[in-house]
């Protein structure tokens, strides 16, 4: 545990230095805010256009879309963070081999890198939600937010995504530079399947089956319930309205445990395989 924490601390420090150090702080804050904000605005505009052309179901899905899109920005960042750290350290910096021969924990280090990326960008989420509440009249009010639920859901969700990110880092250890697209491809696919953009009920039946098997679907639902008092209203037909919040939390907890059970041995296996094939210092140079 001490080795894990030690490596986590160094990984977080390095992540902070490399993620936030490339431009001046003002530009960085602007960039961090503009990215989720512009995503939210694009989705809002698309939704408004659809509603005006007569394809609306009657329910105003703006809060659903806005919260989903803004919260998902963190998923995409975290999911890709560890795989990106592996690629950057191995191929661009040529340093992964030097980290691998230290007595520290590789997992701790990668978790630290992921933590740094999320922390740096996390502030953008409440700020963008505030922007949505003030400018787009998204019904998020400090007085109606379910804070305890929010806390539990955030922690469980971040754990799930972190373990998933660890699996992607393991995959990246074993393949070449184009593995950089793995994280993006997975987060892109999940964007479709997790109900971030639209309720999963609009998906064909077979896709709904996949969506219900993805833990992040429940995480986004939990986030909406914590932030938006009307999230469970049947009029939105999200496909998860009938699920009680207790059951939703149990699903999230079970998912977090399952992801841990899967990802830790998988990462170990990936590290062993990388050593077996001599991939820890691979440089594909393309």
């Amino acid at each position: 545990m001490q080795r894990f924490l030690q490596a986590f601390r160094v990984g977080a420090w390095l992540g902070w230095k490399t993620e936030s150090n490339w431009t001046n702080p003002l530009f960085y804050i602007l960039w961090s805010l503009l990215l989720p904000m512009s995503n939210g605005l694009i989705m809002t505009m698309m939704l408004r256009v659809l509603q005006r052309t007569g394809n609306s179901s009657g329910a105003d899905l703006l809060p659903y879309v806005f919260i989903g899109t803004v919260v998902y920005s963190i998923v995409a960042l975290l999911l890709d963070s560890m795989a990106w750290a592996v690629l950057e350290d191995r191929e661009r910096m040529g340093m992964l081999k030097y980290i691998a021969i230290t007595p520290s924990s590789m997992y701790g280090y990668l978790w630290g890198r992921g933590f740094a990326k999320v922390s740096i960008n996390f502030l953008a989420v409440p700020l963008t939600l505030t922007f949505g509440a003030l400018v787009l009249d998204i019904p998020i009010r400090l007085s109606t937010i379910n804070w305890p639920l929010l806390l539990v859901v955030v922690v469980l969700g971040l754990l799930i995504v972190t373990f998933a990110a660890q699996i992607l880092a393991g995959v990246t250890l074993m393949i070449a530079r184009h593995a950089g697209f793995v994280g993006q491809a997975v987060s892109g696919a999940l964007y479709l399947f997790t109900g971030a953009l639209f309720p999963i009920t609009v998906l064909p039946n077979w896709m709904q089956v996949i969506a219900r098997a993805v833990p992040l679907t429940y995480w986004l639902e939990g986030m909406r319930r914590a932030l938006w008092v009307d999230a469970q209203n049947p009029v939105y037909n999200t496909g998860l309205n009938q699920l009680s919040t207790t059951n939703l939390l149990l699903i999230l907890l079970a998912s977090a445990v399952a992801m841990a059970v899967i990802s830790i041995p998988l990462q170990r296996r990936a590290e062993h395989r990388a050593k077996e094939k001599g991939l820890l210092d691979m440089n594909t140079a393309y």
Partner: peptide, 12 residues
């Protein structure tokens, strides 16, 4: 370990 002939290191 130190390996030669490479320009490793975190540039930032």
């Amino acid at each position: 370990m130190v390996s030669g002939g490479e320009s490793s290191g975190y540039g930032l």
